[in-house]
Design a protein around this nucleic acid. Structure first.
Length: 473
RNA sequence: GGCGACGUAGCCAAGUGGUAAGGCAGAGGUCUGCAAAACCUCCAUCCACCGGUUCGAAUCCGGUCGUCGCCUCCA
């Protein structure tokens, strides 16, 4: 059975049928680089990283394109505040974002095109739309003529008439219709600008993605992704531009991740749940998160619910996922027995196959990561049961490798990579040795005191037949 | 106001017609000097509410209430 994925365009799950068999072209809207990225941006990057990894696991070659918007009003405003060059400022944030993604173990995309490096293609795209009557120049600006696109509104389920009835679109003298949107913006003083047939200026927001997608993946792509907040107007406008230029269907499948939300206290002092966003000032940056938690914890936060649903972030769910990571890691502890064949190893092998089948069935169903994790926890239990039953190193390692591999498909490393641990390690080991000597001398009160005091500092001890292990938290 | 999504145990959450996965927390037990970890057992007669379709619905349809997103920049 083919992979099923939910298509925002049809609001149904559909089987994945790619344009070229075995190859997936996937374009995902990236970030506007005017500040540090937050964990909402991370959620989107993680969702599409997981999708990409799974498609590769299922044998597809994935061409994964993620853009950077590096020219835009916010960047220009920010640069003016800081007295820096906007293009240079954006470039610095691009570098930071790449560092964040690497720290989150997000696989690098096939390419990361930027607006500033796509100007010629954008100009050609706009010229093509004007030629075909889908766009018009006015006073150095160029606008898309929404009225010329008969099926505008298909993705977001809106009609142009409804939108015109809304009070929130400001009338602009130069536009033929308030629903029209800018493809090219004439330069204003102090702004970066590029020469064009319509005068110096810069691209509008939506055209860049149409142009970059065309340049990187061709006229038709398999999957177009991004946050659900981009459905309207951004993705609606991309469809209008691309399909008006080529006359062909742009993307087969539209995939949108839900928003990361956070609980905040409002003006009336009441708590409310709202989207994490820079404009609301309620963000946790990726760096802030990673200073306190392993990357796997954030990934588990994302994996634990449906990628399409909003996800309410808070200390509670972080603690839950940290415990979940510990539980996954518990399966990696070494064997304690030597049983190589018979009943117990056979049951373990059967559990491995069942877990992998459950994992694939869940992931094939629109990337049901919570279901896939459930299958992995069944395997964790089987491995731990086998270890307790005395199963030896070889059969146990086989199952552990299987678990590691499937976790890897989700991008989980199962490493603790706790910040702050390395410097303290020798001293912790010293205290553990001391405690072991006290235990050997049956000085249990003192030994327990050492353990309790370490626990108070967040270092937990576990006595095993192989000696005492420790971990943070 | 318009468009869309969602509402499952103390918490997170899967499940889209056949009688409720998984994780956390909690209770009891095994193991342990005592713990921790691990393992075993228990933990929703019920899926926001009200109608309807069906032999049968958390799952389909209609309505009500509630939450969130978009309609302006936004992952």
């Amino acid at each position: 059975m083919a992979i099923q994925l939910y298509n925002t365009l049809t609001r149904r799950k559909e089987p994945l049928e790619t344009i070229v068999p075995g190859v997936v072209g996937m374009y995902v809207c990236g970030v506007t680089v005017y500040d540090r990225a937050h964990i909402g941006h991370a959620m989107s990057a993680l969702v599409f990283d997981i999708i990409r990894r799974y498609l590769e696991f299922r044998g597809y070659a994935v061409r994964h394109i993620v853009n950077f918007t590096d020219v835009d009003d916010k960047i220009i405003n920010r640069a003016q505040q800081l007295g820096r060059d906007p293009v240079e400022l954006a470039s610095a944030y691009v570098t930071e974002f790449h560092e964040d993604l690497a720290a989150l173990h997000v696989q690098p995309a096939t390419a990361y095109p930027r607006v500033t490096e796509t100007i010629p293609q954008i100009l050609a795209f706009i010229a093509g739309l004007i030629d075909r009557g889908y766009a018009y120049a006015a006073d150095g600006d160029v606008y898309f003529r929404v009225a010329a696109d008969e099926d505008y509104g298909r993705l977001s389920g809106r009609s142009v008439a409804d939108m015109l009835a809304g009070v929130r679109i400001d009338a602009d003298e130069r536009k033929e219709s308030p629903a029209d949107f800018a493809l090219w913006k004439a330069v204003k003083p102090g702004e970066p600008a590029w020469p064009s047939p319509w005068g110096p200026g810069r691209p509008g927001w939506h055209i860049e993605c149409s142009a970059m997608s065309l340049a990187a993946l061709g006229e038709q792509i398999d999957i177009h992704g991004g946050g659900s907040d981009l459905i309207f107007p951004h993705h609606e406008n991309e469809i209008a531009q691309s399909e008006s230029l080529t006359g062909k269907r742009f993307a087969r499948y539209w995939i949108h991740n839900g928003m990361l939300q956070i609980r905040t206290r409002g003006d009336d002092d009441a708590y409310r749940i709202e989207k994490m966003s820079k404009s609301l000032g309620n963000v946790v940056t990726i760096r802030e998160f990673l200073a306190e938690h392993p990357a796997d914890v954030l990934r588990l936060v994302v994996l634990s619910s449906t990628y399409r649903s909003p996800l309410a972030y808070g200390p509670g769910i972080v603690a839950d996922q940290a415990r979940k990571l510990e539980r996954l890691r518990s399966a990696l502890a070494p064997a304690m027995g030597t049983i190589a064949d018979g009943d117990a190893p056979a049951r373990l092998a059967a559990a491995c196959h069942a877990a992998e089948a459950g994992f694939i069935a869940a992931m094939d169903d629109d990337f049901n990561t919570a279901g896939a994790l459930a299958a992995l926890f069944e395997l964790v239990r089987a491995v731990n049961t086998a270890r307790d039953a005395g199963v030896g190193a070889a059969p146990l390692a086989l199952a552990q490798q299987r678990l590691q591999h499937l976790c890897g498909v989700l991008g989980l490393t199962l490493t603790a990579d706790q910040p702050g641990a390395p410097e303290a390690a020798p001293f912790i080991e010293l205290l553990i040795t001391l405690r072991s000597e006290l235990r050997a001398a049956r000085q249990y009160a003192l030994a327990d005191s050492v353990r309790d005091r370490l626990a108070a500092l967040g270092v937990l001890l576990e006595d095993t037949p192989q000696g005492t292990r420790w971990r943070q938290r």
